[in-house]
């Protein structure tokens, strides 16, 4: 949002992936994805630390002004500010854990959500749980700072089941990565 500059980190990230990765080998590509996975959601943190976004009520998005911290099975739960899909917390899983038998994707899209309890912004990694049909429960589509496919890590329509045994989409979680400021 205002003053919060994600600009460039996506491309940098993708250039890194592209540079490391041989197009000729699917195994290598998957390997790079998996190895890079822990790095993926952490990269925005340094950028977020560099930025000093305004957190006054006037600067908050509509979602942030109305978010709650009690019920993680509702679309307005604060961590879900950019989630799209079925909440794993309604599907036998949790806010950051997959339902039984589903496989967490090692990569994710990311968001920055404000916790109404402390007013601070946190980096979220939205990890899809994969390998089962669509859960079909608690469908949400929140779009804070959600952008288009040319910045894929900020796009919540992508089936983020890369590097999993099955790319079938089941549900989505919001894993708290850390404080953004």
């Amino acid at each position: 949002m205002t003053g919060f500059d994600f600009d460039g980190f996506g491309e940098k990230l993708l250039r890194k992936f592209a540079g490391r990765t041989s197009r000729r080998s699917m195994l290598t590509r998957l390997g790079a994805t998996i190895v890079a996975a822990p790095v993926f959601p952490l990269l925005p943190v340094s950028r977020a630390n560099a930025a000093k976004p305004e957190r006054s009520a006037e600067a908050k998005t509509g979602f942030a002004r109305n978010a709650q911290t009690k019920d993680d099975t509702k679309c307005d739960y604060w961590r879900y500010c950019a989630i799209d899909g079925f909440l794993c917390s309604c599907c036998g899983g949790g806010v950051s854990s997959c339902p039984p038998g589903a496989e967490p994707s090692p990569v994710s899209w990311v968001g920055t959500c404000i916790n109404p309890d402390d007013g601070k912004a946190y980096l979220m990694a939205y990890r899809d749980c994969c390998g089962k049909p669509s859960c079909g429960q608690c469908n949400c589509d929140n779009t804070d700072r959600e952008t288009q496919l040319y910045v894929p890590q900020l796009n919540n329509d992508v089936i983020w089941c890369f590097g999993t045994k099955s790319m079938e989409y089941h549900c989505s979680t919001g894993v708290l990565v850390g404080k953004a400021q």
Binding site: R23, L149, P152
Partner: peptide
């Protein structure tokens, strides 16, 4: 045809 793997091509 666009591909994302997640490198884009």
């Amino acid at each position: 045809i666009y591909n994302l793997s997640p490198a884009s091509s």
